[in-house]
């Protein structure tokens, strides 16, 4: 469990001070995955580096499992660092060591030796599915394999927290999947609390329970991903949900046009057909699509309704758990 309170960090810049973090508050519950997103320069890496004890904040507190880590020094700082596994941004493996040698690095620092160390390294290589690459050097591994080794290394000393800064930014979609699967496994099998910085909403969709959006060093949105997508005011929601193309010509012929967000198997499968039959309306899908947030299917459809009871149908959908986003009142009312 990570608790960040009122964290600030300024850097000297060419045009005065840069406020990289400006009063950041966050918490990540034990065993959950938080995705930190936001535009370039918004302070995501600075946040991850502060939590990873690579950068000392100007003020505020960072607590991992209750212990404040900000003011630690020397041996206590080094001990605290072992509690936090870090997958740094970019290539971070030692090129002169095998995959197994890299995974062993934190164990050496922690004084774990002999068969105990070998067993732990084997466990982790197994966790990331690279047992057969134990003796390979980083130059012989693909980008995705290297990142999985970096994750295995970060987990070697059994930290309670795992931080990853853009772990998939240099990878193609297929390889990204394999790295995300490993992060997900770390949470599921080891109960690790994960903070992942990313600019890829696909990462948030696939493995994050919570998301936080940074802008200019401030948290502007923070919550459960499933809550954010059903929140009409959330800007993150728009980028998490399937896109809807604008098609005014097609929309003109309906009495009502609305965006409907449906969460969960039951809602996605049954809500719209049921509304159609209950209210005797003619309901057409004009756009949008289906995606998944973790294991949960989530849909955003643009629907066009014809019939006298169109408004009632929409109201019923929203009462039944769908979230109705944008009601255009009839053919004349463009862009409400």
């Amino acid at each position: 469990m990570i608790t960040v309170e009122n964290l600030t960090k300024t850097f000297p810049g060419s045009t005065g001070q840069v406020r990289a973090l400006d009063g950041v508050n966050l918490d990540v519950a034990a065993g959950t995955v938080l995705g930190v997103v936001g535009p370039s320069g918004s302070g995501k890496s600075t946040l991850a580096r502060c939590v990873g004890l690579l950068e000392r904040p100007d003020s505020g507190s960072i607590r991992v499992d209750g212990t404040d880590l900000v003011s630690l020094d020397g041996i206590a700082l080094r001990a605290a660092r072992r509690q936090i596994g870090v997958v740094p941004q970019g290539d971070s493996l030692l090129r002169q060591r095998t995959a197994a040698g890299n995974v062993a690095l934190p164990l050496e620092a922690a004084g774990v030796a002999g068969p105990q160390r070998r067993n732990r390294v084997a466990e982790l290589l197994d966790l990331v599915g690279l047992t057969d690459k134990a003796g390979s050097y980083p130059d012989q591994l693909s980008g995705g394999q290297r990142q999985r080794i970096a994750v295995a290394r970060a987990l070697a000393a059994s930290p309670s927290v795992l931080l990853a800064d853009e772990p998939t930014s240099a990878l193609d979609p297929d390889t990204t999947g394999s790295v995300l699967a490993v992060l997900d496994r770390a949470r599921a099998e080891l109960g690790v609390t994960v903070l992942v910085v990313t600019h890829d909403m696909g990462v948030v969709r696939r493995i994050c329970d919570d998301a936080a959006v940074l802008e200019n060093g401030r948290v502007v949105e923070h919550g459960k991903v499933l809550d954010l997508v059903s929140d009409a005011a959330s800007r993150t929601a728009a980028s998490l949900l399937p896109a809807v193309d604008q098609n005014p010509a097609a929309e003109g012929s309906f009495d009502r046009v609305a965006d409907v967000v449906l969460i969960g198997f039951a809602a996605v499968g049954a809500l719209l057909p049921e509304a159609t039959s209950r209210f005797g309306v003619d309901l057409n899908l004009l756009g949008g699509g289906l995606t998944r947030l973790g294991e949960t299917p989530v849909a955003r459809f643009r629907v066009g309704l014809k019939g006298e009871r169109a408004d009632s149908a929409l109201e019923w959908i929203s009462e039944a758990g769908g979230s109705v986003r944008r009601t255009l009142s009839g053919p004349q009312g463009v862009a409400a």
Binding site: R78, R81, V86, P88, P106
Partner: peptide, 9 residues
């Protein structure tokens, strides 16, 4: 930095 985060001296 990866080595630093392992708590190495």
């Amino acid at each position: 930095e990866a080595a630093v985060t392992t708590g190495s001296s």
